[in-house]
Design a protein around this nucleic acid. Structure first.
Lengths: 241, 241
DNA sequence: CTTCACACGTCAATGGCGTTGTCATAAGCT
DNA sequence: AGCTTATGACAACGCCATTGACGTGTGAAG
């Protein structure tokens, strides 16, 4: 995003492609969009989503915080770039095989897994529409998979939407749980082994009958099952040739 | 929440039950946990999630912002109280009808809709396991629906897990989009009408062919479709009696 | 009915945040 | 070599959550 919503080029930010002079900071770092995005990801990964502030980012970069605004219009703009970077890393090197169901399954699992690898960043960025390169490439690929499989355009779009939002929704949920402070995370898991194990069959027959299954199941992500259920239902909708 | 995680009572906050002296503020309001929670909900509902700051809450209450800290340890503590209130309202008055598919559908839509009505609180609360009364009641009810429908226990548990996390995942995703600052929200929606509408059919044939459908579809939540897809696949798994 | 302890609303201050206007300087073109 | 200007640095603004000190009105005790 090198232009503003109103179409005028920003006074402050010059597009990465048009950059000529690269002037090192006082501490010697040479800045670039890529360096800033990578540093932001590292910062969030190491110190949690709460550590993501322009001032701390400046410190991590070895530059004045305001230097970031030479590359991004705002923190929000930067966040979108981080989100796009995550999308790109998730599908790096992947190619569709031609089997639409296997391809969708693989993409879903990849998006989910890569979000969990950077839970703090995923929580911040998963629900944004970036309009940037990696996002565009992903949408093009997945729409292609669905249209080539034989779904008419309105179905392809609606099914893509449901598919990607389910992947991102589970990613946010599971990421958020992972990004929780360690004590809170432990406490939340313990609830299944304590509070729910001790309910009386008289008052809570269904929970009492399945408490051991609940405690085990809730430790895993439900996404793989939800993904397969979705794909099963989608397959049932495929127009027969 | 009147005690800290470490078990010590806070020096500053006295539990609602132990409160004796109710001293009106300069502007005449009489404070209480309930008044603060209600005002916070009204604030978020009327002026958007971005309006939720302690300072503005103080203004809306007709009290000094710091007075809030006599009732809650932090804004996070307050938001959890708000979320807890919401769980109670969400399924208030609902009873299962005996039609398992219709019942699951109704619960899913209710959870989703109630989250969207208070996005800020939903985003913070959706991924926590509270083990409190309302949560327990909900799980008992839904496990009952699935087991009574004829699913064996391991399936009932796994399907419940997938179902509830799908509902919460979409709720978080859609809530987060709603909770965005107004400019970012507008920008995210505009992307579909600008960036994606102008891609060339030569480089991005699938997006170009469906750009108008995309722009329209992405304005709505994909949850209703995803929910029906899930229920369709679940129905196909139901053991025949 | 008076007294008194203290709960709780208020004030002021702290330190952090994003963002912007201004300046000076080094990079790269001519 | 000289000039332009992109770009990093600095300082300042207004917002935020949170906290310690203070004094006042309240409810209970006698």
């Amino acid at each position: 995003m090198t232009e503003r919503a109103d179409g005028r080029a920003s006074e402050r930010v010059v597009p990465e492609a048009a950059r000529r002079r690269r002037r090192p900071t006082k501490q010697g770092t040479v800045l670039s969009e890529q360096v800033i995005v990578d540093t932001a990801l590292r910062l969030v990964g190491q110190h949690g989503a709460g550590a993501f502030t322009v001032r701390r980012l400046g410190a991590a970069l070895g530059a004045d915080p305001s230097a970031v605004y030479r590359y991004f219009h705002s923190t929000d703009d930067l966040l979108l770039a981080v989100a796009d970077e995550l999308i790109g890393r998730g599908l790096h090197g992947w190619r569709p095989t031609g089997d639409w169901r296997a391809d969708l399954r693989e993409v879903g699992l990849r998006v989910h897994a890569h979000s969990l690898a950077h839970p703090q960043a995923a929580v911040l960025a998963a629900y944004r529409t970036t309009g940037r390169a990696n996002e565009i490439r992903t949408i093009e690929t997945m729409l292609g998979i669905l249209r080539d499989a034989g779904f008419p355009d309105p179905d392809a779009v609606a099914l893509y939407h449901a598919f990607i939002d389910q992947a991102l929704g589970f990613a946010v949920l599971d990421s958020a749980a992972l990004a929780l402070p360690a004590p809170a995370q432990r406490a939340d898991l313990d609830v299944w082994d304590t509070a729910y194990r001790t309910l009386s069959p008289a008052t809570h027959p269904h929970i009492a009958a399945t408490a051991h299954l609940l405690a085990a199941d809730m430790r895993r992500s439900a996404y793989p099952l939800a993904l397969d259920l979705l794909l099963t239902a989608v397959a049932a909708r495929l127009p027969q040739p």
